[in-house]
């Protein structure tokens, strides 16, 4: 996983509540067996017109937002399907941080696994950031993960909360499977205890069990 330490870039306003992962990455394109090259399908239905040309009204088709690295979203961002193709496509487009008043749980988890930072902030603050994001070329913000701050275009800083373990993993680009494998002995001990209490669950999907 790519590290996340500091990010400076244009923030794009996307004030759509309940923005679902079907909108972010439509099901029709889930047939890929890869996790790269997915940006071409990002926001397909709102980004492109039926004939395949770009919809000029959509924010990510406008300069300077074509190069946005940050999205300012609305409530319940990323609801719906568990598809990790949503964060993969956002990353492939160049988005490394989404700031919104609230996120759907699975999407929120998926972001961290891919070096994409989701930041939840109170509604009033999001409204201000949304205004900042409407400033076009001046909508530049800086995210500093170490100090947990968002720096607005006018230099004002906003503090955000993040789980310390997730922060540690992002800052160091850690693969959490590797971390979990270090707990191999504890997992094995748990399995032994569980087998004593719930023996019928072991070997259960083996047809001969």
């Amino acid at each position: 996983m790519e590290k996340f330490t500091e990010l400076t870039g244009v923030a794009a306003p996307l004030p759509i509540i309940n923005l679902d992962t079907d909108k972010i990455f439509p099901a029709v394109f889930l047939k890929t067996i890869k996790r790269t090259g997915l940006a071409q399908w990002l926001f397909q239905e709102i980004r492109f017109r039926p004939d395949g040309s770009e919809n000029p009204d959509f924010v990510l088709n406008q300069l300077p937002y074509r190069n946005a690295k940050i999205l300012i979203g609305a409530d319940n961002f990323g609801c719906g399907s568990s598809r990790e193709h949503a964060p993969w496509a956002l990353l492939d487009f160049g988005i490394r941080c989404v700031i919104a008043p609230s996120f759907a749980d699975i999407f929120y988890n998926n972001c961290f696994k891919n070096g994409l930072l989701p930041i939840a902030l109170p509604k009033e603050i999001i409204e201000e950031l949304m205004e900042d994001a409407r400033k076009g070329a001046n909508a530049v913000m800086t995210i500093d993960l170490e100090s947990q701050t968002v720096t607005r275009p006018d230099g004002a800083q906003i503090h955000f909360e993040i789980d310390p373990f997730r922060k540690h993993c992002l800052l160091n680009g850690l693969d959490d499977i590797g971390l979990t494998e270090q707990k191999g002995a504890e997992i094995a001990a748990y399995e032994q205890r569980a087998r004593a209490v719930r023996p019928w669950q072991f070997g259960m999907t083996q047809p001969s069990a």
Binding site: S82, E84, P87, I106, N110, K113, I177, T180
Partner: peptide
Amino acid sequence: GIGTSEVEH
């Protein structure tokens, strides 16, 4: 439900 990275985990 979980994402693909969690499936791998």
